[in-house]
């Protein structure tokens, strides 16, 4: 009798353990023992050595053309933080899509939460949106990827996201409106391999460190130099190619802008 009660009690314990485990997913997580913190990634758009000022300021590119910028936006996604020992932390994908827009200051600071405590010496990210998201159903397109989001950069006819959008005007352009439009996208196709302009960029902090602790939330200040969209391995002329969208030439622009990111400084907190 005693023995069977013991077995019975043991089985009770087992059942409780199971219930508690299954319950765990839905309950508030236990108090974190400062194993994670946060980090802010700031994208400061500049043009050469000057701050980017939409509409009002004019700049001169390597082709010798004077131009201004009326829009400068890009997707940053699939962010990975790199530690000094070479290990890294990849943000959960669902919380790793951002749309940086020059005319929206809030969009330029990426607030990364639940980052494991540690010293980070570099960051890697995609400029654009990965191919899987570009072909998935409506439930995988939230936030800045939502085709119903007012600022979304999405081609509905050639279904996929515009990774980088830069627009402006130049007196050098001989079209009716004198505008240039660089809309760079193309994720590589689904049924058939097509041009893939998804670019992964790595910015090393060059000896500097971003220390994430329970109390320290460092801010990594990156520069994005819009001049490099035009000035790079290809010298892009706004007069020669005022419209660059879904075309082979878009590859040259994408190959240029992968080099536009650099570290400016890191705030410890």
């Amino acid at each position: 009798m005693k023995f069977s009660i013991r077995i019975f009690l043991a089985s009770i314990c087992a059942v409780f353990a199971m219930v508690l485990v299954s319950c765990d997913n839905n309950m508030a997580p236990l108090e974190p023992q400062a194993s994670t913190g946060s980090l802010k990634l700031e994208f400061d758009n500049v043009v050469g050595d000057r701050d980017l000022k939409l509409d009002t300021d004019f700049y001169t590119n390597a082709a010798g053309e004077r131009f201004n910028i009326t829009a400068f936006n890009y997707y940053i996604s699939n962010i990975k933080l790199i530690k000094s020992d070479g290990s890294s932390f990849t943000l959960p994908q669902d919380s790793s899509y951002f749309l940086v827009r020059e005319n929206d200051i809030a969009s330029q600071v990426l607030d990364l939460k639940n980052i494991p405590v540690g010293e980070y010496t570099g960051v890697e990210f995609m400029v654009g949106v990965d191919s899987l998201r570009s072909v998935s159903d409506a439930s995988n397109r939230k936030g800045v990827l939502d085709p119903g989001y007012s600022e979304v950069m999405y081609w509905s006819w050639n279904s996929g996201y515009i990774f980088m959008k830069m627009e402006g005007t130049s007196e050098s352009i001989n079209t009716a409106n004198g505008k240039y439009y660089f809309h760079i996208g193309l994720f590589g196709g689904l049924e058939k391999a097509t041009l893939n302009n998804i670019k992964t960029v790595r910015v090393d902090f060059a000896g500097k460190k971003a220390s994430v602790t329970g109390t320290m939330a460092p801010q990594v200040h990156l520069l994005a130099d819009a001049m490099k969209v035009m000035n790079g391995s290809t010298v892009v002329s706004v007069a020669a190619t005022p419209v660059v969208m879904a075309s082979d030439y878009s590859k040259n622009v994408a190959d240029n802008y992968i080099n536009m990111f650099s570290l400016d400084h890191i705030h410890a907190n």
Binding site: V135, D137, A138, P147, S150, S156, W157, S159, E191
Partner: peptide
Amino acid sequence: GGVHHLDLVPPAPIENPVEMDETLSNI
């Protein structure tokens, strides 16, 4: 074949300037 998923079919005619010329967010 420019669209890969049935869910993303409606935005194409909606945003086409010669078809419905509207935005999803406005709808």
